[in-house]
């Protein structure tokens, strides 16, 4: 919605989202990094990170995020998700060095979390800022 004038959103919303924003970030990374100790994991933490994009869109609906960059990062992380288990898990490296099993779990959680977070963020932003051919028809 490029024609939305910034600043017309309610002050309450802006203050509350601004106050909650760092805590959402913290909660997302907590859920990702403690995925193998407490409930949570890559997908859940990633969707919490994606909700940061949503919060930003609700308060400041201006298209200044380049979704192409986010999508490129997501593709890189997807290739890492496909490569890391193939090299580490399926060849038996993790089973041979039991000391690093926790590190492997955390690494996979971080990879999946970033991939899901950027992916859902791209999806939501693309949908919210969709300017199709329908815009030229006025009624």
């Amino acid at each position: 919605m490029s024609d939305t004038n910034v600043g017309s959103e309610s002050t309450i919303l802006r203050l509350i989202v601004g106050l909650l924003y760092p805590f959402m970030l913290l909660f997302g990374f907590y859920v990702i990094l403690n995925g193998h100790y407490t409930p949570g994991g890559g997908f859940q933490g990633g969707s919490v990170l994606a909700s940061l994009f949503v919060a930003r869109y609700v308060v400041y609906p201006v298209e200044d995020t380049d979704t192409e960059v986010l999508h490129a990062i997501q593709r890189v992380f997807l290739s890492l998700i496909l490569i890391a288990p193939t090299v580490l898990l399926f060849t038996g490296l993790v089973a041979r060095f039991p000391h690093y099993r926790g590190l492997y779990l955390t690494t996979m959680d971080v990879l999946i979390g970033v991939q899901v977070g950027f992916g859902l963020g791209v999806a939501v932003l693309r949908f919210a800022f969709f300017q199709g051919v329908g815009k030229t028809w006025r009624l």
């Binding site: 193998h36 926790g102 779990l105 959680d109």
Partner: peptide, 12 residues
């Protein structure tokens, strides 16, 4: 798997 969370162990 050294995970304390069974879901994480199964998924990863």
């Amino acid at each position: 798997t050294h995970a304390r969370n069974a879901v994480a162990a199964i998924l990863l």
